[in-house]
Amino acid sequence: MGHQTQPIAVRDTTAAKMLDLPATEFHKLVNAGALPKPCNLGHHVRWRVSDIQAILDGHAARPSEDFEL
């Protein structure tokens, strides 16, 4: 029996899928400040799964200003 590990950080396309969004919409929301910024791991850009999960659970901080896309 193999042991699968859960990722703690994911690419933009995976993060967008977690929120059921197209990648372009995901990036618009990140740029608008509605979604968290990524972290850089060397040359790799990743989003923390815990940040995405907090959004899904309703525990993420709200943007300080209203915004329009």
Rank of each mutant, 00 (worst) to 15 (best):
H59T: 15
N40H: 13
Q53H: 03
R62E: 15
G33F: 02
D57C: 04
G58N: 07
R48H: 12
R48W: 06
H43S: 15
Q6M: 13
H3W: 04
D57W: 02
D12Y: 00
R62D: 13
Q53S: 04
W47D: 02
D66S: 15
P7L: 04
Q4K: 09
R62K: 15
T13A: 06
Q6G: 05
A60Y: 03
R11A: 13
S50Y: 05
L69E: 06
D51E: 14
A32M: 08
G58M: 07
S50G: 03
L41R: 14
R11N: 07
P7A: 09
D20K: 14
H44P: 01
S50N: 14
A61N: 14
T14Y: 05
P63W: 05
P7R: 09
V10E: 00
A23T: 12
G2W: 00
T24K: 10
D12L: 04
R48D: 05
L35A: 03
I8P: 01
V30L: 10
D57N: 13
G58Q: 06
K28R: 15
I55D: 00
F67V: 12
P22H: 11
H27D: 01
H59Q: 14
A54I: 03
L29E: 07
L29S: 01
G2Y: 00
T14F: 06
R46A: 13
L35T: 04
Q4W: 05
A61R: 12
E68D: 15
T24H: 08
G58E: 11
H27C: 03
V45Q: 11
D12P: 01
H3E: 11
A60M: 00
L69K: 06
A32P: 02
Q53R: 12
E65T: 15
E25D: 05
A32K: 13
T13E: 13
V30F: 05
A61S: 15
V49D: 06
M18Q: 09
A60E: 11
H3S: 12
K37R: 12
L29Q: 09
R46P: 01
H27N: 12
Q6K: 05
I8F: 06
D51T: 02
H44A: 09
A34C: 13
V10W: 01
D57R: 11
R11G: 06
